[in-house]
Amino acid sequence: MNGLNGVYVPGTSPLHRLPAGVKLAGLAVACTVLVLVSSLVVLAGAAVVVAALYALSRVGTAAAWAQVRPVRWLALALFAMQWVFAGLPGAAATTSRVVLVVALAGLVTITTRTSAMMATLERCLRPARFVGLDPFRLSLLLSLTVRSVPVMAALATRVREAQRARGVERSLRAFAVPLVVSALRHADALGEALSARGVDD
């Protein structure tokens, strides 16, 4: 399954080299500022800055567009609705704000390796040990999940083929019940294998 490589675009730009934590903090600050600003001039300036940052990261227009593409219809609908309710300037401000925040967040994702981002997130999740999850188990949980995605996808394919063979292609129950039961069996076998290897100690 090569879909699991994430959306990271390799590169050596200054943005790629910045630590993930710094980028996340920067993003948080930028988003807060964008939410507070309503002047169109400032927003236009912000758009220029975001475009400049994309240029600096040298990821190419295709990767940049891929980040904004998912909100294109929403942006259009939002613009139309705001135009009716809040007038043209308000519509332009709200819409550009949403698009800019999404573009900035996308830029952080594009320029940060999934592994680096995961390490940072694991650090942020360290307080989870107070509900009984120590950091080791947390990393184990995350990597187990990443590993389980292709396993579950293969399982889904197998169940669907069996379903086709039985001629009950359209029944959701004939698909989902065996899928969930085998997922649970797989999970419980996996859990026993893990305890057998002493993960509990």
């Binding site: 187990l144 995605v149 396993v151 579950m152 996808a153 889904a156 997922a183 859990g191 305890s195 509990d200």
Partner: peptide, 28 residues
């Protein structure tokens, strides 16, 4: 350990993966 046994760890991971797989295009 009681609060979060290893068997549950595996169940949580597998279900997180299952939710992801249910969103795959053409999965169903």
């Amino acid at each position: 350990r009681r609060r979060f046994p290893t068997g549950d760890l595996a169940r949580v991971a597998v279900f997180a993966a299952l939710i992801a797989v249910l969103g795959l295009p053409g999965s169903f």
